[in-house]
Write a protein that binds this DNA or RNA. Structure first.
Lengths: 246, 246
DNA sequence: CGAGGGGTTGACGCCGATCAAAGCTGGTGG
DNA sequence: CCACCAGCTTTGATCGGCGTCAACCCCTCG
């Protein structure tokens, strides 16, 4: 819970250029799926493409930049900073997700701060563009709603699996969630930093460290190469998490 | 966390009749605000009006009834049942909120079970009606999005305030949240049952009971009449919750 | 080489889970 | 009217998990 304020989030991002959504080869996975190719011919404000380095901030809570962000690759954490500087990670979103949607309701600004976990490949979409497209193509409404529902489902999962029960089970649930993000056929995952894990499951760094170290010792988590990629024995982990839930 | 399965949720609801949304005097507070009075003249499926008694179930997780529900009065809890029968309350929604919106995305059914906490005055709206109105009145899209965002904001608050820190602070946050539901000018609230509170803050009944009893002894929570209405010293409670966050 | 950040480990104490039992309240039937 | 019961709340005793403080290891970088 308690952790001193520390990171000075730098705007450590790289601009890759203006984007032509009509020709985006992964558009069918993104917010603008379902729109015709020519829908973007008259958009007034440009969609820009960035790569955010790890720990770079996409936006800050309560800011009112007129953008939403569509994640192409990488992970983005949404976090809440307590007045005392401790932080709680409220969600982690991956490829295909859209963050900052609260801006569509106007007014109050972003609900959280958004920070890249791994290097994140992201499209920055101006609000005006979304609104214009939305009025012309009502099916975009549906897309937006589904993205919001995705956030909601994930938040609920967070509450149920990561906010309940003994710490070990929560950490294991987190590992399993991370392995779901992986496009990798095996269950290889890149372990988060202990501090992030602690801010996710709501415990301390030490507790997380002990649990992870223990899982490693029991070979339920094995370093797979020289990178910090780990393979987790999903079956065994699920079994442990399940028996602890009781 | 652990609590045996028990309640056989009965369909203890009372049908009050078919509703004419065009003449609903609180429509400006509800999902259909922003639609013209005559929008409802040709709706095919009827909107029905119910009063659900405490503990009556509006719908069950993963069911696929083609309805969403708009809450006029009272509180509704959304809960997740673990396989072992223990339950976790994921959200509490009050007047003006809409529940069951996940059905709009088709397919997977309700995400949670919805159960009336206090007696709940509720309109049951057929999906077909929503969809028909939505295609004719795009502004309804906006309304739906705002309701979803409301769910999301509440879920995030849940994670941050009720899923983090020592139990005492979490319970106090819950009390303060409940006092926000109250339309009452003072901070009078109807205390939830201990079991519900426990399922909300993720502790045991005993722990909640001890905390509440202690707050009563310290006069931060006072029975206000003969009913189980309590007045809470919001300032003092906020102070305690604040100091514990650090 | 030292400094610093992240991870791991140990010792200790407290919060809260667990088990158990005793009030309290409202409802039901004699 | 009282006895009785079921459900809810409160309280106590005990014990384990996890927070806290502190040290140490490992690696990278200046």
């Amino acid at each position: 819970m308690s952790k001193a304020l520390k990171k000075a989030y730098c705007a450590d991002k790289e601009w890759l250029g203006r984007v032509d959504c009509g020709n985006c080869h992964i558009r069918h996975l993104m917010l603008f799926s379902g729109l015709p190719d020519n829908a973007f011919e008259n958009t007034l404000a440009p969609v820009d493409h960035f790569i955010f380095q790890p720990n770079a901030m996409l936006y800050e809570a309560s800011a009112t930049d007129p953008y939403i962000y569509s994640i192409r690759r990488g992970l983005v954490k949404l976090l809440h900073m307590a007045p005392d500087g401790s932080q709680r990670i409220v969600r982690i979103m991956g490829p295909g997700a859209t963050v900052g949607l609260a801006m569509l309701d106007g007014g109050d600004g972003y609900r959280h701060s958004a920070v890249a976990v791994s290097a994140a490949d992201v499209c920055r979409i101006p609000l005006t563009t979304v609104k214009a497209l939305q009025s012309e193509y009502p099916q975009l409404c549906q897309q937006v709603r589904e993205r919001l529902q995705e956030h909601l489902d994930r938040a609920d999962e967070w509450i149920i699996a990561l906010g309940t029960g003994p710490a070990r089970g929560r950490v294991i649930h987190l590992l399993l969630m991370m392995s779901n993000f992986s496009t990798d056929p095996n269950d290889d995952i890149e372990l988060l930093k202990r501090e992030d894990m602690a801010a996710i499951v709501g415990t301390t760094v030490e507790t997380v460290s002990r649990i992870i170290a223990d899982l490693k010792r029991r070979q339920l988590l094995r370093k797979v190469t020289e990178t910090n990629l780990y393979r987790c024995d999903a079956e065994a982990l699920r079994a442990i998490a399940g028996e602890e839930a009781g």
